[in-house]
């Protein structure tokens, strides 16, 4: 009788272990499928110091829902729709502060360290001492195509990090400025 119970327990433990292994494998595969996805939660330590924290999470499904509100007939909206076509996600985190220099470079370092991966390369670097504005645009190139974009925009009272997943045409990226929480930056256009 005892043996039967032990056998049952062992079988269940084995099944649980298999399930856990499968779950871990699935998570790893999901992560591997979206290598351009940045871990933005590493910025959350800024939240207690921020006057306002904004999170925009538009994964593929939500993005498609949002696009339904845009018209093909209006040139501006049609351009945005075209720019977003194929994009699998847009993630934005913005912290606004009520005083200057509440944050330091170290606070954004967890994002920069993710962008030091060989898959990412820096496309744009803007430094404005007068306005205290720093903008960095990084792209992830995979198989000769841009498969992700990361934007870090800092000024004296604001930290914005944007992560776009999927094929992005950099020329069309400018169409997204000021939309979906993406800052109205200038990258040479």
């Amino acid at each position: 009788m005892k043996e039967a119970v032990l056998k049952l327990l062992a079988t269940r433990a084995y099944m649980l272990a298999c399930a856990a292994l499968l779950f871990m494998l699935a998570s790893a595969v999901a992560q591997a499928q979206e290598p351009a996805r940045l871990e933005l939660a590493t910025l959350d330590r800024l939240e207690p110091r921020a006057e306002q924290t904004l999170n925009i999470t538009m994964d593929g499904k939500v993005l498609q829902l949002a696009l339904r509100f845009l018209s093909d007939k209006k040139p501006n909206e049609a351009k945005i729709k075209e720019a977003v076509a194929g994009i699998r996600g847009i993630y934005v985190k913005r912290f606004e502060f009520d005083q200057d220099n509440v944050f330091s470079a170290a606070d954004v370092e967890p994002i920069r360290s993710q962008l030091r991966s060989p898959l990412w390369s820096q496309l744009v670097e803007v430094r404005s001492k007068k306005e205290g504005q720093n903008i960095d645009v990084f792209t992830m190139i995979d198989g000769g195509k841009i498969n992700g974009v990361a934007i870090i925009a800092l000024d004296r009272r604001q930290v914005t990090v944007v992560n776009i997943i999927g094929p992005v045409d950099v020329d069309k990226l400018t169409e997204l400025r000021g939309n979906f929480g993406i800052p109205d930056f200038n990258i040479g256009k």
Partner: peptide, 10 residues
């Protein structure tokens, strides 16, 4: 239901 926007003020 998918999260879209969250805004938190101090």
């Amino acid at each position: 239901w998918q999260p879209l926007i969250s805004l938190r003020r101090r």
